[in-house]
């Protein structure tokens, strides 16, 4: 399968601190890559560099083999929009609170002159037709995230970047959104970049996994393999941090302190 997305050596520093250090990966058509790590690991920076919301210091992003341009002007902007779309974490802030669901979707369809209808879009993400005239504050978190996904998919993007898109949702809602995402990528061939702090969520929806720690990719491989037999001690630590039977927070805290010490020792 050809790659829809190729990120090559993405690097970004803020105030002298490196938040992403030459991050490279590819996403196949209909494929899904997970980027996991703690807060501050640089995973969100990577997502924003891919989508073009922030400019990398070095590195390139190409979609379908073509580097993303910086051309100004409406036509170029709209073309870039059809390359990559993004869904954000906060379901409350990611929709314009003034617009009804129908108007928000119509707005995108009109801008991009898509042949689709609002009803088709709503149906494709499993939103009931009667929600068309609802405003964001009348919707549940899961419904809002469906609207955000519908808006992103309206333009038929090659790649969809999801930044903690299910983290704020209830587990049952989360499970349904994850199933929806799997269905969408199978049906439309859109490539997913799935950024999350939750390894179990990544396991549900990604083929390949990047584990990031302090801006660096410490592990990169097939999701199931990485999670079953992690190579890097950091991945292993993340895996044992998830609450489950016999989980003791004190032990996790010790592990983490020990890991941080070992990293400092390695750096020194």
């Amino acid at each position: 399968m050809p790659d829809v997305l190729a990120a090559e050596g993405l690097t970004k520093s803020y105030k002298g601190r490196c938040v992403a250090d030459s991050v490279s990966f590819t996403v196949a058509r209909g494929g899904s890559v997970g980027v996991v790590g703690e807060s501050g690991s640089g995973k969100t920076t990577v997502a924003r560099m891919i989508s073009g919301l922030i400019e990398p210091d070095a590195g390139t992003v190409s979609v379908n083999g073509r580097a993303r341009g910086h051309d100004r002007g409406r036509a170029a902007r709209l073309r870039r929009a059809r390359e990559i779309q993004m869904v954000f974490q906060d379901p409350y802030g990611s929709l314009d609170r003034r617009l009804t669901v129908g108007n928000a979707l119509r707005d995108v369809l009109k801008r991009h002159r898509c042949g689709k209808t609002v009803a088709e879009l709503m149906d494709s993400v499993g939103l009931a037709a009667e929600l068309e005239s609802s405003r964001p504050h009348q919707l549940s978190g899961g419904q809002r995230q469906r609207v955000a996904i519908a808006k992103a998919l309206a333009v038929d993007p090659a790649v969809l970047v999801l930044d903690e898109a299910v983290s704020a949702l209830d587990v049952s809602v989360q499970a349904r959104i994850l199933a929806l995402l799997n269905e969408i990528r199978r049906d439309t061939g859109v490539g997913l970049v799935f950024v999350t702090h939750d390894l179990a969520v990544a396991a549900e929806v990604t083929d390949t996994l990047l584990v990031m720690y302090q801006g660096k990719v410490v592990e990169h491989g097939d999701t199931a393999t990485v999670l079953r037999s992690p190579e890097h001690p950091y991945t292993e630590m993340l895996l044992s941090s998830a609450p489950g039977p016999g989980w003791r927070p004190e032990q996790v805290a010790e592990l983490r302190a020990a890991f941080a010490d070992s990293q400092e020792a390695a750096d020194a």
Binding site: E38, S39, H197, D198, M237, L238, S241, A242, P243, P249, E250, V252, A253, R256
Partner: peptide
């Protein structure tokens, strides 16, 4: 919080 920080705070 992410899982590791959550564990630290809960400890």
């Amino acid at each position: 919080l992410d899982v590791t920080t959550q564990a630290e705070v809960l400890a």
